[in-house]
């Protein structure tokens, strides 16, 4: 009994999904953040965010092709988190970290919230 584990497979799939997003191929939803549109794949959004999981598992909402987020959500913070969903890389800058963390709380991305919190704490100490 043996198997071959392709160790890059998850990241290769994610890279291709991000290419599909950038080319708007099979994207199936527009997320509006303060009227700024972001195209994405519902499956990726719901795999990464508790909020989107709740929305797209709701039979009344799962077929929506446009969703407006709370107007308090920062579009730049959302853009950073959407990039993270498709790359596994989270851009952390002092200027944007609070917006990213607040947006991650809203999107129910708990591990990202914890990471932002630790980053802020370590910045405060240094």
């Amino acid at each position: 009994d043996s198997c071959i584990q392709f160790t890059r497979h998850a990241s290769d799939v994610l890279l291709n999904l991000n290419r599909l997003r950038s080319r708007d191929v099979l994207t199936d939803v527009t997320i509006l953040v303060n009227r700024q549109p972001f195209r994405a794949h519902k499956t990726v959004l719901m795999a990464c965010s508790g909020l989107f999981y709740s929305i797209f598992t709701d039979s009344l909402k799962c077929n929506l092709n446009a969703i407006s987020l709370d107007p308090k959500v920062d579009p730049d913070g959302f853009a950073i988190l959407l990039g993270f969903m498709y790359t596994s890389r989270l851009s952390l800058r002092e200027s944007s970290i609070v917006a990213v963390m607040n947006t991650a709380v809203y999107l129910q991305m708990d591990h990202v919230v914890d990471t932002c919190h630790r980053f802020i704490q370590s910045s405060d100490r240094s």
């Binding site: 043996s2 198997c3 071959i4 584990q5 160790t7 890059r8 290769d12 291709n16 290419r19």
Partner: peptide, 20 residues
Amino acid sequence: QGVTTIKEMGRSIHEIPRQD
């Protein structure tokens, strides 16, 4: 009996180009 796993470090699928 243990399972033997061989790790393949190379690309696992084709790469979708940025643009056609």
